[in-house]
């Protein structure tokens, strides 16, 4: 198990091992955080095996990025269904054929 990122060699991407944990890979490209993450479904027994919950780590990273005023791009499988809801002020509209919103989706937004 785990997560990975594939990128063009010429990009100045660095890994932040201190911010990484199981299923959370934290990279930086200049002043942007790039996060590759897997969040098992909320009810999954997988959470018992984590030393650091990837949900908690994502929350910490969002706080850190806000404190440092660094944008953060998150990619991965978050098991978060958000339907057509959007987050933030004046976000671009979203049109998804999946209209279901789950609790993880709501908390992610």
């Amino acid at each position: 198990g785990g997560v990975a990122a594939v990128f063009r060699k010429h990009l100045p991407i660095t890994k932040h091992p201190d911010l990484c944990s199981d299923d959370v890979l934290v990279l930086a490209l200049n002043d942007v955080f790039l996060v590759s993450i897997y969040l098992p479904p909320a009810s999954s027994p997988a959470y018992r095996a984590y030393e650091v919950s990837p949900v908690d780590r994502l929350q910490e990273l969002a706080g850190l990025a806000a404190t440092l005023d660094m944008p953060m791009i998150i990619g991965g499988d978050l098991n978060a269904r958000t339907g057509n809801l959007t987050a933030g002020i004046d976000p671009p509209p979203r049109s998804s054929p999946d209209l279901t919103v789950c609790s993880r989706g709501r908390s992610l937004l």
Binding site: G2, A4, V6, K9, D23, L25
Partner: peptide, 13 residues
């Protein structure tokens, strides 16, 4: 992986 790409992993036991 094509030569112009790199991969960074965070593996889990």
């Amino acid at each position: 992986l094509p030569e112009q790409f790199s991969i960074i992993e965070q593996s889990r036991p």
